Amino acid sequence: MPDFRLGFAAAVLLISALAALAQDGAPTLDCGKATAQPDLNDCAYRDYEAADADLNAEYRKALVKARVLDGEYDGQPVAVDALKSAQRAWIGYRDGQCVLAGLQARGGQAEAMLVSGCLAELTRSRTQELREFAEREG
């Protein structure tokens, strides 16, 4: 079975590089009015970047909560280890699922937009799960 993660990582890096190039000296892109596919791709990637930043903030809060829980149980890192394991597994799921989502436009200009849109959607969902864990009583 081929390892799609390498291709996925390359695609995300390419999208990021193209987004950065598009921003250098270019007028600010209004994603609410974007109609050209390269602009739509860039906007979808920006949406994912924002969702990822939110996820990272919530993950840090969840780690704090996990450390508190572990401290309540003789300092054994069960909660921290479980959270890290779950996050690694989720990343693998997210990446594979979003490669599948992009295949609707395989090789086409919209593939990057579909992948980024999937990344943003799944990331927002995971962010909510982490938020609920961090805010849970006990």
Results as ranks from 00 to 15, higher is better:
M1I: 04
M1W: 07
F4N: 11
F4C: 11
F4L: 13
R5H: 10
L6Y: 10
G7S: 06
A9V: 03
A10W: 01
V12M: 12
S16E: 14
A17K: 00
A17F: 00
A17R: 00
L18H: 01
L21D: 15
Q23W: 00
Q23N: 09
Q23G: 06
D24E: 15
D24K: 06
A26V: 01
T28P: 01
T28R: 15
L29R: 06
D30H: 04
G32V: 01
G32F: 04
K33Q: 12
A34H: 01
T35Q: 12
A36S: 05
A36E: 14
A36G: 03
Q37S: 01
Q37W: 03
P38I: 00
P38F: 06
N41M: 05
D42K: 07
C43F: 04
C43L: 07
C43I: 03
C43V: 02
C43K: 04
A44R: 02
D47W: 00
D47R: 07
Y48C: 03
Y48N: 04
E49Q: 15
E49H: 01
A50D: 15
A50M: 13
A53G: 09
A53T: 15
D54C: 02
L55Q: 06
N56A: 14
N56W: 13
E58N: 06
Y59Q: 05
Y59M: 08
K61W: 02
K61D: 13
L63H: 08
L63G: 10
K65E: 10
K65W: 10
K65T: 06
K65P: 08
E72D: 14
G75Y: 07
G75K: 12
P77Y: 03
V78F: 15
V78N: 11
A79N: 14
A79P: 13
V80L: 10
V80F: 02
D81G: 09
A82S: 15
L83Q: 10
K84P: 03
S85L: 12
Q87L: 03
G92S: 07
R94M: 06
D95K: 06
G96K: 04
G102K: 08
Q104D: 12
Q104R: 08
A105V: 00
R106A: 15
R106Q: 14
G107A: 02
G108P: 08
G108K: 08
E111N: 02
M113D: 05
M113Q: 12
M113I: 02
L114W: 03
S116L: 02
S116F: 00
G117D: 09
C118M: 04
L119T: 01
L119F: 03
A120Q: 07
E121L: 06
E121T: 04
L122S: 09
R126A: 05
R126N: 07
T127K: 03
T127S: 10
T127Y: 06
E129N: 13
L130S: 10
R131V: 06
E132W: 09
E132V: 13
E132R: 11
E135D: 13
E137K: 14
E137N: 14
E137R: 15
E137Q: 15
G138I: 07
G138W: 15
